[in-house]
């Protein structure tokens, strides 16, 4: 039959088209991931990865001669920063994504109303997103500079502060500063996705609500929020995955400081600064597993309460 011949030749050419893309994807994602996991079981050093020995799970957990536990899984307190960096990452991701969602909702609701300067405001809101992360980190490092920074000057002029603060060096402030910069940079992404969802909502439920004289705040929580919830959940997971692998911003603003060290910063420090390729790879693998678990948990929990149909 000619038709099935045609189909067969189409499928063949489809595979010819697919192969280059799949080969590149396997080379940039699959193979390096496999090698990273494998290196996690060795004691390789960055300067000479060929000279390595298989050490099993020792990078993860081993008993020292002194009877103490060592390895990534034992890096609590003064034994190392691994679990601290996991905790910092989760704290950073949860707080900044929460703040971005709230701010993004507010700005999207404003942009969804019709008023004269709407186009201008939408353009302005996009600017932080367009600025490269490194540039925005440097910009904020300058603004938050403890000696000459604008932030101290502004807050002291307004009478909010009585003396300058060192925003990124002070252990109590560093995390908050980093989160504030991340929120500034990524709120536009949230705003855009929420705005797109808002603009797809049917207008008739709003008219019905207005005719019934229901308070706008109640309409927001009873009508708008449930309707945009699916889009909101997707936007949140995208941002959350992004926030869990944060590196640039923290590396620039606070370098390798313990107070803000995230998993990515920890991995790079082990691998590059300490040249511990094997140990760093084990940490990479842990990072991958932790992010995968959090993603699966989020998707499961999200769906469960979604099907629960509140």
């Amino acid at each position: 039959m000619p038709m099935s011949n045609l189909t067969r030749s189409r499928v063949r050419s489809a595979w010819i088209f697919l192969v280059p893309m799949l080969v590149i994807l396997a080379l940039v994602a699959g193979w390096p991931l496999f090698r990273t996991i494998w290196y996690g079981f060795t004691d390789a050093n960055l300067s000479d990865p060929e000279a390595r020995q298989f050490v099993g799970f020792e990078n993860y957990l081993r008993r020292g001669d002194d009877g103490e536990w060592y390895g990534l899984l034992a890096e609590f307190g003064d034994k190392g920063n691994w679990w601290l960096s996991v905790w910092n990452t989760v704290k950073f991701a949860v707080v900044s994504v929460f703040l971005e969602t709230v701010l993004g909702l507010v700005i999207a609701l404003v942009l969804n109303a019709s008023f004269k300067m709407r186009g201008l405001v939408r353009t302005a809101v996009l600017i932080p997103w367009a600025i490269p992360t490194i540039v925005s980190a440097k910009m904020w490092q300058w603004i938050l500079n403890g000696q000459y920074g604008m932030m101290n000057d502004l807050l002291m002029t307004l009478g909010i502060l009585s003396q300058p603060l060192s925003w990124t060096a002070d252990p109590d402030l560093a995390m908050a500063s980093v989160i504030a910069v991340d929120v500034w940079k990524t709120t536009p992404f949230m705003t855009l996705l929420i705005l797109a969802a808002l603009q797809m909502l049917p207008s008739n439920c709003y008219e019905a609500a207005r005719v019934d004289g229901i308070h706008p705040v109640k309409v927001f929580f009873k009508v708008t929020l449930p309707l945009i919830r699916p889009a909101l959940m997707v936007a949140v997971i995208f941002r959350f995955l992004d926030a869990l692998r944060v590196f640039d911003l923290i590396y620039i603003l606070t370098s390798n400081s313990k107070d803000t060290m995230t998993m990515s910063v920890y991995v790079r420090q082990q691998m590059v600064d300490f040249a511990e390729m094997g140990y760093g790879s084990a940490a990479s693998t842990m990072l991958f597993i932790i992010i995968a678990l959090i993603t699966i948990a989020y998707l499961k929990i999200g769906r469960v309460s979604f099907e629960g149909g509140r």
């Binding site: 193979w31 290196y39 960055l46 998993m263 760093g280 990479s284």
Partner: peptide
Amino acid sequence: VAVLSGMFEL
């Protein structure tokens, strides 16, 4: 960052 060392080797 999860593929950093494998990518470096490649």
